[in-house]
Each structure stands twice: as structure tokens, then as C-alpha cells.
Simulated scan of single mutants.
Amino acid sequence: MSTPTHRHEDAVARYFEAWNAGTEARDKAVAAAWTADGRYTDPLADVRGHEQIAAVITAAHEQFPGYVFRLSGAVDGHHDTARFSWELVNEAGGPPAGGGSAPVAGSDVVVLDGEGRIRAVYGFLDRVPAEA
């Protein structure tokens, strides 16, 4: 197992700040986390640049209103790469209304530039509801 540095953990923290930012703060949070030509790729999206990344985040919030993304476990990193798992939970931090597990969960690998901003995200969805 690798030992993440503060650089990895800080980048992942900014990543979650972007995913959880409100509509008015989202563009600024995305710009703080990603390089201008940054890429976000998962099974449902493959986009580049701040505007397109913010649009993917907005679509996720429209599909799951009242939910936030949170880190699930520790950040593992080395060199310019980090990996981590996450889950989508209600804003109160608990499971969905009615109990059960988070409706969406996954693991991401991020590649950082020399300043610790995200150049690329490669996302994997471990749990997705059938209607998604």
C-alpha cells in the first residue's frame, strides 16, 4: 500500500468540494480542483474542461437532489496519482431515506499536475441504481 501525501489528500479534498459545491460556488470549486484542460471520465461521461465538468456535477445533483458525495476510506497515492473510494449519501450524512446503502458508490483514480491540481479523473461505478 502506498502512503499518500498531503498533496494527494488536498487534491481529493478539493475534488469533493467541487462535487458538493452549491450552484453558485460550483464553477469556482471546479477551477480550484482541475486544470483548465482537465478531464473527467467514468462509464457515463467523458468530458474536458471546467464548463463540461461542472455540467456533469450539476446533472448528478439534479438526478440525486439532497445528496452529497463523501470519501469512503482512505486516500492512497504515489507520485502524481491517487485513488480513493466514495459514496453518495443524504446531506445529513446518513443512508438514504428508508435505510439501506448509499444509492451510488464508486472508486476514482486522479492524476495531478505539478501544482496538485487534477489533470484527469478515471471513475469507476461500483453501485448504481437501476434507473440511473
Rank of each mutant, 00 (worst) to 15 (best):
R70Q: 15
E9W: 04
A13Y: 02
G22M: 06
E9Y: 05
K28L: 11
G116C: 05
D27R: 14
A45M: 08
G114R: 14
W34P: 02
P4E: 02
V75H: 02
S2E: 13
W34A: 04
R26C: 09
H50P: 01
A25S: 14
E62N: 14
P96S: 11
G106H: 07
L44N: 10
G106A: 08
E62F: 04
I57G: 00
T81E: 10
D46S: 15
T5M: 07
V12M: 06
A59D: 13
R7F: 01
T35I: 06
M1T: 13
Y67W: 05
F84K: 01
R119M: 14
P103C: 05
P65I: 09
F16R: 05
E87L: 12
G94Y: 09
W34I: 06
V110Q: 01
D76L: 13
D113A: 10
G93E: 08
P103T: 07
G66L: 08
S101C: 00
D108H: 01
Y40R: 01
R26E: 12
N90S: 12
P129V: 11
A29H: 05
Y67G: 01
A21G: 08
A60N: 09
T23H: 11
D126T: 12
G116M: 06
S72Y: 03
A92I: 03
W34C: 05
A92Y: 10
T41K: 04
S101M: 10
H50C: 07
S72H: 14
V68R: 15
D76V: 13
T23P: 03
E24V: 11
T81S: 02
R70H: 03
P65A: 09
